Amino acid sequence: MAAKDIYYVPEGSKWPIFGSFALFVLFIGGALLFNGNANANVVLYIGIALVAYMFVGWFNDVIGESRSGKYNGQVDVSFRMGMGWFIFSEVMFFAAFFGALYYARMYSIPWLGGLGSGTATHEFLWSAFEAAWPLSVTPDPTNYDQPSDVVPAFGVPAINTLILLTSGVTVTFAHWALKNNKRTSLNLWLAATVILGFVFVFFQAEEYIHAYNDLNLKLSSGIYGSTFYMLTGFHGFHVTMGAIMLLVILLRTIKGHFSKKDHFAFEAVAWYWHFVDVVWLGLFIFVYWI
């Protein structure tokens, strides 16, 4: 580790601008895909490849700097502050979507049903409207996909809740093993966490296939379909990224990286994983259960 009075300032890096370009290509590919463009898949796959290359290269540079002893306590503090603010930004990101769900359920739907105004607004827009959540009936079946049912809470979502809560325990055990210099236990508990993370993603993919094909629940299924896929979809993306980060940390622990006093990269990913757990509990309660 570097001397305490020396603050390491990295040299200029290509990765921020390269990452911006890679994300731009990825988003263009996604936009083309949603609009049915014939070349969408090619652009999308190029974007995914560029983003993957960016992550591998950037992680490699940072790991190399850390292993070479260029970081000290001051740099560690800056990393912790940066990760803390990053997680806070993620909290605000999901708060916006939870806020949209809350507004639709607690304000828009009752207002459309005539609550508080003395006028049944829906009589002028959709006479068959029922002010009850979830809105699984759409006003115009020709323009909106009509779901046959809602996604039940006590099925795959309940199983995934158990999986994520268990993974929060296993990553905590892995952290305890690292702080006590028990490398075998560290690798085993961390491997269990990685497996649980990818199992969660697999089950969610299965749930999406069932909802899309069997229940006809799509983004075009009104407010219920859009809020369901936006909230669970973004969370699934975060779980995927978290599982990949945990896998990187596992590969590093197998190589003997980290010590019981110097392991912030492990802690940062563990913080992120616990954040993902907490968000899922909110999703399970407010999207699936009530």
Rank of each mutant, 00 (worst) to 15 (best):
L23F: 10
G256P: 02
K179Q: 14
V77C: 08
I109F: 02
A270P: 01
A191F: 06
M241V: 12
G113V: 04
D262I: 10
F21R: 04
V9N: 12
Q204K: 09
P134S: 07
F88T: 11
V62K: 07
F154S: 09
F27H: 08
R105F: 05
L32E: 14
I159D: 04
P10K: 13
V239G: 00
P16T: 06
S185C: 11
F198Q: 00
E65Y: 12
V91A: 12
I17C: 01
L196W: 01
L32D: 08
I46T: 11
S148I: 13
A100H: 00
V25N: 04
A95Y: 08
S167D: 02
A270Y: 03
V239Y: 02
R105T: 02
F21T: 08
G197A: 01
G99D: 06
R252W: 10
S68H: 10
V171P: 00
S226Q: 05
G47T: 06
V169C: 06
V269E: 00
L23T: 07
E123T: 14
S66N: 12
I48H: 01
M230V: 15
G99I: 00
N72D: 10
W271N: 06
M92S: 07
G282S: 05
K4G: 10
L135H: 05
Y71Q: 07
Q204D: 12
F24D: 07
P139S: 10
F266H: 03
I254L: 09
Y288L: 03
T166A: 13
G282C: 07
A205I: 15
T138Q: 13
M106R: 08
N39C: 06
V91Y: 11
A128F: 11
F18T: 07
H235S: 04
F286K: 13
P141A: 09
